[in-house]
């Protein structure tokens, strides 16, 4: 089972792409707002794994490129946290007015 010993860049990229796909599926299929938010976090973290995998790949040949990726990843982490805070606050306002957070039952606004 050599894939457990020789991890290459592609392994991380495939992992990230899988996580991203799971995230998209979660957003599109799940109906609870909290779980949708968790899926979105999964998408952001998939992007972070991609950035860091590339950054590790650039390290050694092009350190400048590697540092840019690391800075990007840190900023994505910080912003994802801020986004989660705002999102949870919005879930709370929805829950306060309706006693549920099921996005399929948010039907006051429609054509």
């Amino acid at each position: 089972m050599s894939i457990f010993y020789d991890l290459t860049l592609s392994h991380f990229l495939v992992l990230a792409a899988t996580l991203f796909a799971i995230g998209i599926t979660g957003v599109l299929l799940r109906r609870n707002a909290i779980i949708v938010m968790m899926s979105i976090e999964l998408m952001l973290n998939a992007a972070n794994i991609t950035v860091l995998a590339f950054s590790r790949g650039f390290a050694g040949q092009d350190n400048n490129a590697a540092y840019q990726g690391q800075a990007f990843a840190l900023i994505v982490i910080a912003i994802a946290a801020a986004e989660a805070a705002v999102g949870l606050a919005i879930v709370v306002t929805v829950f306060r007015t309706r006693r549920h957070s099921d996005i399929d039952r948010l039907t006051m606004l429609k054509d």
Partner: peptide, 19 residues
């Protein structure tokens, strides 16, 4: 709050694609 919820979820979803 309903509008904000829809806006937020779609906006954050888009941010995932952006990143």
């Amino acid at each position: 709050s309903e509008g904000a919820m829809k806006y937020f979820l779609m906006g954050a979803f888009a941010s995932g694609f952006l990143v």
